[in-house]
Lab assay of single mutants.
Amino acid sequence: NEEPLPEGWEIRYTREGVRYFVDHNTRTTTFKDPRNGKS
């Protein structure tokens, strides 16, 4: 039961299956979860 991502964020996966987060607001990507700060 995960809380929803902030507005404008999306979860994607690399070809290796590593989860990362896309911030469409700033057009950046990060491996850090914007909901809780954990990677």
Rank of each mutant, 00 (worst) to 15 (best):
P6A: 05
T14G: 05
I11E: 10
R19K: 11
D23M: 02
F31V: 13
Y13V: 08
G17Y: 04
N25R: 08
D23Y: 03
Y13L: 07
R15Y: 10
K38W: 11
R35K: 02
N36R: 08
T14N: 08
E16G: 13
S39F: 13
E3Y: 10
V22L: 10
E2H: 10
T26L: 05
R27F: 08
R15H: 12
K38N: 14
P34K: 01
E2G: 10
R12S: 06
R19F: 05
E10W: 03
E10Q: 06
P4Q: 09
E3L: 12
G37Q: 13
N25E: 06
R19S: 06
K32E: 15
G37D: 13
R19H: 06
T29Y: 15
R35S: 03
F31E: 10
G17M: 06
E3H: 10
R15Q: 12
D33P: 04
S39G: 13
K38P: 14
E3G: 14
Y13E: 06
Y20V: 07
F31N: 11
D33S: 01
H24I: 09
V18R: 13
R19A: 09
D23A: 02
R15W: 10
G8Y: 04
F31M: 15
Y20H: 03
G37F: 10
D33W: 01
F21L: 01
K38I: 14
D23G: 01
E16V: 08
K32Y: 15
R15I: 11
Y20L: 06
T28I: 08
P4F: 07
R12W: 06
V18D: 07
H24N: 10
T30N: 05
F31A: 10
R27G: 15
G37K: 12
R35A: 03
T29F: 12
E7G: 08
I11M: 14
T14S: 08
E3S: 11
T30W: 05
G8T: 02
P4N: 09
E16I: 09
D33H: 02
E2I: 09
R27C: 15
V22Q: 05
Y13C: 08
R35F: 05
K38H: 14
V22T: 04
R12G: 07
N36F: 11
N25F: 07
T29N: 10
T30E: 04
Y13N: 04
P34W: 00
V22R: 05
P6Q: 04
R27A: 14
T30G: 06
T29M: 14
N36K: 12
V22D: 02
V22F: 15
T29V: 15
S39M: 13
R15M: 12
V18N: 08
T26I: 02
K38L: 13
K38V: 14
Y20T: 02
R15S: 14
N36D: 15
L5D: 02
E7S: 11
D23L: 02
E3K: 11
N36W: 12
L5W: 04
N1V: 13
S39T: 12
N1T: 12
E10K: 03
P4S: 09
K32W: 15
F31I: 14
Y13R: 06
F21Y: 08
R15K: 14
N36I: 14
S39L: 12
R15E: 13
G8K: 04
R19Q: 10
I11R: 06
T14A: 03
